[in-house]
Write a protein that binds this DNA or RNA. Structure first.
Lengths: 140, 140
DNA sequence: ATCATACTTGACTATCTTGATCATGTTTGT
DNA sequence: ACAAACATGATCAAGATAGTCAAGTATGAT
């Protein structure tokens, strides 16, 4: 599973906006990039995509910024990955041999397995873990 | 899961050599590329890697070619992927925030899930399925 | 010996994706 | 009017991927 920086940043931004969804004023890009070490102009691009997806709203002008516009429990990591749209490599030519086909099916199985994991993790799950101490206790 | 053409070709070559492991004479590159539509010089590169891994032997000169030198039941798709060495993207900087860390853990979970699938599929499994009719019957 | 076949090796190229930047414009609060 | 902050589109550099090429070496057949 190769997760691009773009997707990683997108998730961080969504999580950060979730954390501050009770704030009165919107969150400026600058505040997010400062906290998470994300290159500013890059995050601009990413937020544009997130806005297109309908998950954040922007407020222009002085004291503007971004605000979450969905429920974090309704959004999974897979949703974000798909919205950011990691250029999926063009599908290979129609399998010519049976071995070819069998093999391609295995690649698909493997991909499905990781998608399953990603589809099971909602933003709210991560926020929960973040609040209740370090999650690494579950893995180490 | 993005499987590179290189890995796909490598697996096809290994499978093809497995199918013909009872042949007296080694299998020429040309025979593999013809059957599976693989660009010739590209497969040369790939076979070099497979030889380095110790999974195939080459026979030079006229009537030369390649021969399998491992038991297909001892080799998984993951083995091949790792041998071909899909340039893993350099690890991200040490997670700076807790959210960053939680997120990275999820990417790792997803990757592990697909690796698990790939580590469970041996070359012999695919050969088996190939012999016993179309495998897609298990999925459709 | 010579020739054709087939592997060996290393360098090389084109194209695409990713990560990132920049310039310019627009909106809004004070 | 001015500054803060988002909007948009173009552009760029590095790296990976897919694939090619040329020159060399080993071997069997004639």
């Amino acid at each position: 599973m190769v997760i691009s920086a773009r997707v990683h940043y997108a998730c961080l931004a969504m999580l950060e906006l979730s954390l501050r969804s009770d704030d009165v004023s919107p969150v400026a890009i600058r505040e997010i990039t400062d906290r998470h070490n994300i290159p500013g102009p890059f995050l601009v691009q990413i937020l544009r995509t997130l806005r297109t997806a309908g998950w954040v709203q922007s407020v222009r002008g002085s004291h503007g910024g971004y605000r979450l516009s969905v429920d974090p429990s309704q959004l999974t990591l897979l949703d974000i990955i798909e919205a950011i749209g990691c250029q999926e490599t063009a599908a290979r030519a129609t399998p010519s041999t049976q071995l070819d086909e069998l093999l391609s099916e295995q690649w698909e199985e493997a991909a499905a397995a990781s998608r399953r994991v990603l589809a099971e993790t909602r933003l709210s799950d991560l926020l929960e873990r973040c609040r209740h101490g370090d999650a690494s206790m579950f893995y180490i």
